[in-house]
Every structure is written in C-alpha cells, then in structure tokens.
C-alpha cells in the first residue's frame, strides 16, 4: 500500500517561507482554493495557509540553536481527524494515504480540527469549510504535467530541498532511505497517529585537528626563514678543523 508523505530536513531548512507562499499560490487558484485572506491590507491580516514555518529557540545563549520548523498536515496513517467527522467529508484515500476534506460534504463543524493534535487544519473563514494540505493531490497525479512537475508545490519551491516527497511504504524510496539513514522521526509519537510526514534532525559536522598537524615538515616558515640564516662570515667548524 502506498503512503505518500513529506520528509522535512531540519538540518537544512533555513526558514525562508518559500514552501509557505508557493503552497498558498498554487492552492488558492486551484481546486483547493480560494484560500481567503482577511484584512489583507489592514490590521492583523490573517488568512488560510496549509503550511506554516514556525521558529523555536532551543537552549541558552551561547549554546542556542534556532530551529525553523515547517508544518503542514502530516497525513497520519491513523488519522484521528477522520473517524470523528460526522459527514465523511474528511477521509483518507486508500490508494495513496492522502487525508483530504471534501468541501462539498463538510459542514464546517470544526470537530476534526479539535481531533487533530497537530493543529494542521484550518477553517476557511470565507467558505466556512475545513481546509488543509492536500499533498497537492491535483499536481502529483496530474498526468498532463511533466514528471518533474508532478511534485507538491512546496517541494518544488524549496531552495534547500529540505522537503522530500515520496512513498514511505516503499523501502526503496528516497524518503524511506532518508528516514532510515538520517534518523527521521514522527511528531508526537505518543498518540499513535503514525504521522506519515517525518522530520530529519540537525546533524553536526566537526573537524578534529591533531597538534602535530600544525607543525609538519613542509611548514613554509622553515622556507621563509623565521629562523634567520647566519651570515656567511660567522665562525663555523670550517674555521677550526681540517679533516
């Protein structure tokens, strides 16, 4: 069975928000749209976004890590948001594991948003229906697009390629590999929701330098004669021995 997902690499995410606005841009004019913006030019502008990048500070100065943390619907394998939906508007597609909302059925009761521990759902204040990341279902299966374009908008946009996309049930996929080899983890595992999206942790590269590496025989200081050469006229053994 296929379970499509995003794997987000916190090791390279610089928090640029490209995934945020490219998602909005694709989806607002597409089949998941429009995505409303309220007070777009006034106080406290707010709108529907499927993907937001948050920022956390971890640790204390000077040992601080700044973590940029993109988050959209995690397409849980056992999504608590689905069974609670009274209308069946929320559902998980068996064929690819994407969790979707059928706007035509949704009554906007918000129950699913209370059932999602991740805060991944947003009620569109204009259409009064629940919305969330569709995993760009209208891109990834659109055979009229070139294969390179059959990716979520956010994945294509991401300048650091911090967003990987693929089938986490296929052990040979790039996402499975990344999860296995780079320590991919799910969010809030304690609830047994089995989020399909995974995160890759920060990884550090260090350099170890041994003391003798600083001396070395080919040290140019030896050439440049920091040790001054004695003048030719200075006394040497040549002056006193004959052999």
């Amino acid at each position: 069975m296929t379970q499509l997902a995003l794997v987000i690499d916190l090791n390279v995410c610089v928090g640029c928000h490209a995934c945020v606005t490219s998602c909005k841009e694709w989806n607002t004019s597409g089949s998941a749209g429009p995505m409303v913006d309220q007070n777009p030019y006034g106080a406290d502008p707010t709108g529907t976004f499927f993907n937001r990048v948050q920022t956390f500070e971890v640790g204390e100065f000077p040992n601080t890590e700044t973590v940029h943390f993109p988050k959209s619907c995690l397409h849980c394998e056992d999504p608590p948001c689905v069974p609670v939906c009274p209308t069946g508007a929320s559902y998980k597609r068996p064929e690819d594991g994407i969790v979707l909302v059928d706007y035509d059925k949704c009554i906007g009761c918000k129950y699913c948003s209370w059932a999602c521990p991740y805060g991944a759902r947003e009620l569109d204040e204009q259409q009064r229906v629940m919305k969330k990341c569709t995993l760009c279902v209208d891109r990834i299966h659109d055979m009229s697009m070139s294969p390179d374009d059959r990716l979520p908008a956010c994945v294509k946009a991401c300048p650091t390629s911090a967003r990987l996309f693929g089938d986490i049930h296929d052990p040979a996929s790039a996402v499975s590999l990344a999860i296995r080899e780079s320590g991919g983890y799910p969010l809030m595992p304690e609830w047994g929701t089995h989020p399909a999206n995974h995160y890759l942790p920060r990884r550090k590269t260090r350099i170890k330098i041994h003391a003798d590496e600083l001396e070395r025989a080919d040290n140019p200081l030896k050439v440049d004669g920091l040790l001054p050469r004695p003048a030719r006229s200075e006394p040497t053994l040549d002056d006193v021995t004959t052999w």
């Binding site: 928000h17 945020v20 007070n39 106080a43 406290d44 502008p45 707010t46 709108g47 529907t48 976004f49 937001r52 990048v53 948050q54 920022t55 956390f56 500070e57 971890v58 640790g59 204390e60 890590e65 973590v67 943390f69 948003s113 805060g119 759902r121 947003e122 009620l123 204040e125 983890y185 799910p186 969010l187 809030m188 595992p189 304690e190 995160y199 942790p201």
Partner: peptide
C-alpha cells in the same frame, strides 16, 4: 519536546510564522 522532536530542556517558540493570528 515531543511536538518538534527535539530533546533539549529549554525550548521556546518565537513565532508561529504569522503575526496576524490564524485559525489555530
């Protein structure tokens, strides 16, 4: 810690990414 998967004791959220609020 479990929400973002980082074990450090001191984690402070600085922004949800949006300043005018959101549904959540």
């Amino acid at each position: 810690q479990t929400a973002i998967g980082i074990s450090n004791r001191r984690i402070v959220q600085k922004t949800q990414g949006f300043m005018g609020g959101s549904f959540n």
